[in-house]
């Protein structure tokens, strides 16, 4: 066990940081929920960042680091499935990816070249044609869409389906980790700058302690997400996703509460992260679904 970054890992983190810096700020004129990062997606594609996990010196751990870093941006791009799940599939499936779970609308579905279709215990892959999908208006702060018709699917054999579920959980945990970090940082900025009763809000212990608890939870999510990406263990993946959804549920309201009315505006970017977090709370069966997996995989 060694938590220092290797030279390759350090280079990768620096490079992703540099790329991310260009997309660090929400456009001032944007007043909405789904700020899609089309340019970000193109840049990542051009620089082959979606193939990080396949590079032996980097692997899924670096892919997870990239996912959590990019999730901290105000722009949403489909990174987690492409970087962490796609490399696990047999055959060549084009990106962007999306998940449709039991027929519900899903993130990036209207933009997806490959859809992972989950119906209860079955996992299948589909390549939708243009008319098979449509965008839907949503509060989820991702571009959401739905499958209009029953597209042709390739059902995955049980072993591959289990593996896909495992990496979907790692992807979910890594993305929530990044979103939590960005939401915490954004709220810390507000508490530092906003003054009431003649002093910054961040000097009031009632807020300091809650903020610190949120930060501890977010840090725990990060550790479990990275551990799961490195170990590729199904139990670790289930636990990482479970802890991510559990912690995110606790944090999201608290952060908005601390932002007060400022957090209700579409001008402030906090909702871009918190409403993405909310979109992820229901995925893969939500906390109940992850708990069942933890119960089976982590307790002998």
């Amino acid at each position: 066990m060694d938590f220092r970054l290797t030279a390759d890992q350090g280079d990768l983190v620096q490079a992703v940081d540099k790329l991310a810096e260009q997309f660090a700020n929400k456009p001032t004129e944007f007043r909405g929920f789904a700020l899609y990062g089309e340019e970000l997606d193109k840049e990542l594609e051009n620089a082959q960042y979606f193939d990080i996990a396949q590079v032996p010196e980097l692997g899924p751990l670096c892919a997870a680091m990239a996912v959590e870093r990019l999730a901290q941006l105000p722009y949403a791009a489909e990174t987690a499935l492409s970087m962490l799940v796609r490399p696990q599939l047999s055959g060549d499936w084009p990106r962007p990816f999306a998940v449709v779970e039991n027929g519900r609308p899903g993130r990036f579905v209207s933009k997806a070249a490959t859809i992972i279709v989950i119906d209860d215990d079955d996992v299948a892959l589909a390549r939708p044609a243009a008319g098979d999908v449509e965008p839907v208006e949503s509060l989820m702060a991702y571009p959401m869409g739905r499958l209009k018709s029953s597209v042709q699917r390739t059902k995955l054999p049980p072993e591959e389906a289990t593996n896909v579920r495992k990496w979907l959980r790692v992807a979910l945990a890594a993305e929530i980790s990044g979103l939590l970090q960005a939401a915490v940082a954004s709220t810390v900025d507000h508490l530092t700058q906003r003054k009431q009763f003649g002093r910054p809000l961040g000097t009031f212990q009632a807020l300091r302690h809650r903020m610190a608890e949120c930060a501890v939870l977010a840090g725990g999510v990060r550790w479990l997400a990275l551990k799961a990406a490195d170990s590729a263990d199904a139990g670790d993946a289930a636990l990482a996703a479970s802890h991510a959804q559990e912690s995110a549920t606790r944090i999201a309201y608290d952060l908005h509460q601390m932002l007060g009315a400022m957090g209700m505006t579409l001008e402030h970017p906090l909702h871009l992260w918190t409403y993405r977090i909310k979109a992820l709370l229901s995925e893969l069966g939500g906390r109940g679904g992850q708990a069942r997996a933890v119960g089976e995989l982590c307790f002998g």
């Binding site: 939870l217 999510v221 550790w223 551990k227 289930a238 636990l239 802890h243 912690s247 933890v294």
Partner: peptide
């Protein structure tokens, strides 16, 4: 559900 929650806190 509660066991999964507690285990998450232990491992974090």
């Amino acid at each position: 559900e509660q066991a999964a929650r507690a285990r998450g806190f232990c491992e974090a």
